[in-house]
Design a protein around this nucleic acid. Sequence first.
DNA 1: GTCACAGTATGAATCGTTTCATTCGTTGTG
DNA 2: CACAACGAATGAAACGATTCATACTGTGAC
Lengths: 330, 330
Amino acid sequence: MVSVRDVAADARVSVGTVSNVLNRPERVAPETVEKVHASIARLGFVRNDAARQLRAGRSKSIGLVVLDIRNPFFAEVARGAEERAAEHGYSVLVANSDEKHQRESTHLDLFEEQRVAGVLITPVQEALPRLERMREHGIPAVLVDRESHDSRFCSVAVDDVMGGRIAAAHLLDQGRRRLALVGGPAALRQVSDRLRGAQDAAAERGVGVEFIATDALSVEEGRLAGERILARDRSDRPDAIFAANDLLALGLLQSLVMTGDVRVPDDIALIGYDDIDFAAAAVIPLSSVRQPAALIGSTAVDLLLGSSHPADEHVRFEPELVARASTLGT
Amino acid sequence: MVSVRDVAADARVSVGTVSNVLNRPERVAPETVEKVHASIARLGFVRNDAARQLRAGRSKSIGLVVLDIRNPFFAEVARGAEERAAEHGYSVLVANSDEKHQRESTHLDLFEEQRVAGVLITPVQEALPRLERMREHGIPAVLVDRESHDSRFCSVAVDDVMGGRIAAAHLLDQGRRRLALVGGPAALRQVSDRLRGAQDAAAERGVGVEFIATDALSVEEGRLAGERILARDRSDRPDAIFAANDLLALGLLQSLVMTGDVRVPDDIALIGYDDIDFAAAAVIPLSSVRQPAALIGSTAVDLLLGSSHPADEHVRFEPELVARASTLGT
DNA sequence: GTCACAGTATGAATCGTTTCATTCGTTGTG
DNA sequence: CACAACGAATGAAACGATTCATACTGTGAC
């Protein structure tokens, strides 16, 4: 493997000069730069990032921990983050927690060992103590898709309580009264906040919200929840369902409408959350609550790398109702 | 920042012993192990991966370059790869080429600087020379979702020509004769192979296949292609469309069915490719050609890390027709 | 009492890059 | 002609973990 030393020898300059050519060519005489570049090309030299990092004490990577990369919402967040990070000369390491503490923790360990410049994370639950410790070790964190007023972490979030409120209010406006929220695990802030918002909106009109728990926020879990609802007596079913995300909603559609005998929205109105690309093309075009995914990702990077910002800046975007056939009828 | 040296001092042992506790505790006396662990915990020591890598000469990461991480097919491939890699103690760095040479190349540069253990890649076009050079530098590659008989690289692929054949044959079986393939860029092997397979199947029955080019394989591009088709005279439209992937197909559905006046499958039958989760829940449940995404990812990792395998093993999976309403009618 | 040996622990050398205090050489000025 | 000043290049030190040849200790055998 060829190193700066080899390049230096080949170009008949010192290693320091090679390094300067690489990092601040303006301090090196043009013809020397030329000469060194020629040697680099001839020998096929490739900088060793590990050595560079070791010296620098810090890597040029940002860790991103999401709940589920298969959820297009998070895929989009990741893309937004990646793009902005690249502009700053950083790259993004994406890790999946699969909504599991254990996996989240393992990934944070890895990120710590890599001395990432910072971590963007959608915590599974209360990961704050762990993140505090990391910050003491010089690794800052930005909470993504998650409010954090109490703590001293930056955060980028969409108001999930308001989102839940918007979704439920919309269902109520359509004349529905037997509301259910499908989602889980309940410990996820996304789920509990959206539920709370829905309950608030419902309570104002004197109705309650049933909570139908799932093990995860996936299409498959949505399908299973749908089957459980189908197993009930017709009179015992909700007349409106608010799914905690679009994956669940699409799964629900599959079992309720396609294998079941439920008409949407006639029998049950359905609204999802995130407004992923696929929602608009669903069997019954899916109403949803839109979040600016890519913007969330890029903003999180800005907060992490921004030098001017205070240690606890909170950016909050507003969710937006996108009403389609699944709640409006034809 | 606390280092092995600090731990050693705190535990009153040598740095070598600390390292041994970390890496081969069986060679260290139990009580010493105990003592060192206590110091590690007390000081909050975290191993510096850069230093470790520098010494080792190689990282415990695998680079994965996909065309588009927002495509659930690739998200699933990534997950499959990640899971298998974790079993071997490796992690996966996912990078997006967005079907652009430039970006692909930049990511490969980065991976090379990081001395990754290997690269899994779905090349944008002919990236073989570049990959050969990387192999000479000790970084092996496995081609993903891409045949490679000519070269000496391992590959994991699904027979795209056969997939195209299956899709077209199915459309022809439904009595369609004016076939079109929507996809692009044409330089992508995925696109050209699927087109070729479709043309072969069509030619056998004496019909041709129109090629409707798109700039990318995305929902948005599908929408645009749909609009272009809608702009045509009714009599000039195809009666069956084979979309090069499900994203395009879902975009086509959106413009053809939801904003346009086309009935699917009555006026135009539509089939996609990949059978992503969302295909089954589409406005018209989408027929598709299924590929075992997660298996592709995990197999690629096996090929890369497998010690026994020859340098040019080729794993090929068979695509599978999944016929739904978008080609079958109700 | 000596020797061999196993079980542990040691610490200097190493990986490849960057940094920075120095040195070198040239030009311009008084 | 001496000296200041500046641009350019130098090379040793440092980053932190791992490795490996060596040293130490105590036990059992002869």
